[in-house]
């Protein structure tokens, strides 16, 4: 609903950070000779993946914490003739739609910001949509875990502690394969759902190297399964005393 009520607020929250990533890393650094001119092509899929996950995550976690603790809006939803877990699924779906929308809005913006414009000639669109959709759902599941486990008075700390590592360990700014010289870090990044989404988007757009194709759906589906299960169990625990 906020998209319609406060489109400016929603877009600023969702898009300001990715636009600055694209602008600084994709445009400014190559311009001043600190990065290759083609870096933007590698960056764009990563930033789309990052946006899908973080927008979806925040749109589940933050409202959930507020609704469970302060406004209690969720109580009316929990009295709807649905099983309690369905209300949790609905939160994820709602937030995932926002995440997908935000990720794809970046395409026309990238066309303006990046020095080479968009290089989508070799893109596999169904695969790209599937990867971003999967990422947005995974992000929503992580958000459900946070929103149900973290107490309201600690949510700002939780965001800082979780979002920053998520941001930088998710193969957004570098291709995962190239990490083989930093093996321990390469292994750590496999714990981050964003890694699979970034690599998946890179594979779908067809710009540059990416991890083995079989690992991508496995990682995304696995993340949804793990975080979804924990999140829905947590949701049920909060919904029913």
């Amino acid at each position: 609903m906020t998209v319609r009520r406060e489109p400016g607020g929603f877009l600023a929250q969702a898009l300001l950070q990715p636009i600055f990533f694209l602008f600084i890393f994709g445009r400014v650094l190559p311009e001043i000779g600190q990065a290759q001119g083609s870096y933007g092509n590698l960056l764009l899929p990563g930033v789309m993946a990052l946006t899908a996950i973080t927008v979806s995550l925040q749109n589940v976690a933050l409202p959930l914490v507020i609704e469970f603790s302060f406004t209690k809006e969720i109580e009316d939803r929990l009295l709807a003739p649905l099983p309690a877990w369905a209300v949790g699924v609905e939160k994820i779906v709602h937030a995932a739609l926002r995440g997908i929308f935000s990720a794809f809005v970046l395409l026309p913006i990238a066309a303006l910001v990046l020095p080479d414009g968009l290089q989508l000639g070799g893109a596999n669109w169904p695969a790209l949509i599937g990867v971003i959709l999967g990422g947005a759902i995974a992000g929503g599941c992580v958000g459900l875990v946070m929103g149900t486990i973290v107490p309201a008075n600690k949510i700002n700390i939780a965001f800082a502690v979780i979002l920053t590592p998520l941001l930088f360990t998710g193969a957004t700014f570098y291709p995962w394969e190239s990490l083989d010289s930093l093996r321990w870090f390469q292994v750590v990044t496999l714990l981050n759902p964003l890694t699979y989404v970034s690599e998946g988007a890179r594979a779908a757009i067809g710009t540059g190297e990416h991890m083995a194709t079989w690992a991508i759906p496995l990682g995304i589906v696995g993340s949804i399964a793990v975080f979804g299960t924990v999140g829905l169990l947590g949701f049920r625990r909060r919904a029913i005393d």
Binding site: M1, T2, R5, E73, E75, D76, L79, P81, P83
Partner: peptide
């Protein structure tokens, strides 16, 4: 039979829980 029970009930809660963004 939670779903069937919820279909038959309504509650006016102690604290208002309207959706304030709507």
């Amino acid at each position: 039979d939670q779903v069937a029970v919820k279909l038959r009930l309504a509650i006016v809660p102690q604290r208002p829980n309207l959706d304030r963004s709507l």
